[in-house]
Amino acid sequence: MADSRTTRMREQFEERFEAYFAEQTTRATLHDARFRELWERVRLLAHGGKRVRPLLLLTAHDDLGGRRRDDALRAAVGVELLHNALVIHDDIIDGDLERRGGPNITAAFASDARARGIRPREARGWGETMALLAGDLLLSAAVREVARIDAPVELRDQVLRILDDGVYLAASGEQADVAFGLGLERPDTESIRTMMHRKTACYSFETPLRVGAALAEAPEQLGHRLGEIGRSLGLLFQMRDDLLGVFGTPAITGKSASGDLREGKVTLLVAYARDTPAWEAVAALWGRAGIGDAEVELLREALEVSGARKRLEKEIEREAAHALALIGAARLPSALAAELRHAVRVGMEREA
């Protein structure tokens, strides 16, 4: 996006997002101090980030000639609330304690509890309970915000269906991701791509683009084409995430470069490497939480030597070409097409 346009759009979104949290924090005051603290921690977690989802939604709405800017802003708040709800729940499922380079909600509440003399196990349970409640609150809030758009019933129902599709597929994708990690099945590369689409790509890229198009009252077929572009973009970003999750620089990404290997996360990298001699020699280390940096480096080297890293980099290039072809064939307004092509470049080149 052009800098001035992006800045203006983001400022408008941030104003609405902040207003939402101010309202909820005030509302929580009517209950008790502890519940207000929960909302304040959620507020801290939710602020920051690239705002990819709301900006995609607003861009699609505006560039398709939409005249429901207030509804688009409300829906943009909804999709960002949904994103935060899902990452909070994902952290609980994965047992993670960091988010965006700092302590997540589980870690923050657990730390407070330990400082008050609560034993570590119970403190961790308290932190996870608070995170679960926070995710529940945000998930409900996302649906509520979208349901409040001031549009005809048919249009509001259409937008709610799109949002529901995103949540439905995210749950399916999360289930598959956990099943793969437990070894309940040995997925092939296509199954992993399907999981990536359902868990992340749909709600992160398809949903905002389709909601923006719906609120602009664009032809249904155009909404479907944008959905296909969103799916490809989502896969592109997720593949890049998986690459950075092993070979990225933590100081830049704000994420561990060993977590995926210690957790035994089943990614395309691992799928490409398995059954190769290089990976088989170190596979026993994969998924062992207690391994040290030297063992992690052995796993990284195996992913290099096996050719998995190069193969994933080639797949990222192919997916980018596919996304660009979809954009070229979609007959989009020139401004929207340019924004989406820019998103493809970002997806290929980003380091965080």
Rank of each mutant, 00 (worst) to 15 (best):
G173P: 13
T25V: 14
S140Q: 10
G66I: 06
G347R: 05
E319I: 04
R161N: 13
L64C: 02
L303P: 10
L64H: 03
E23R: 14
I291T: 09
A60M: 03
A343W: 14
R5L: 15
E351K: 11
D188A: 08
A201D: 02
P208I: 05
F35H: 12
A273H: 01
R210P: 02
D293A: 13
R274H: 06
R114M: 12
R350Q: 07
H31T: 12
H89E: 05
D165M: 11
S204H: 04
E217D: 14
R240M: 07
Y272W: 04
R100E: 05
I327Y: 02
H342Q: 13
L184H: 14
L222H: 06
A321C: 06
V167K: 04
L303C: 12
G66P: 05
K310V: 12
H47L: 15
T106P: 03
A325Y: 05
E315G: 03
T25F: 06
L222T: 11
V305K: 15
G65F: 08
T249C: 14
V178E: 05
P277A: 10
P219Q: 10
G66A: 10
D150N: 08
L81D: 00
M1A: 15
A147C: 04
I252N: 11
T7H: 14
A123I: 03
A171P: 08
G101P: 04
L57S: 00
E15S: 15
F13R: 02
A115P: 01
A115C: 09
G181W: 02
E317R: 11
A176H: 14
V282N: 01
S140Y: 05
G227E: 02
V167P: 04
G48F: 05
V246S: 06
A214F: 12
T29I: 09
L312H: 07
P54I: 02
D177I: 06
L81P: 00
I327R: 00
L312P: 04
A110H: 02
D63N: 09
H197K: 14
D188H: 07
V344D: 04
E11P: 08
L332R: 01
D242N: 15
R193Y: 11
L268D: 00
V87W: 02
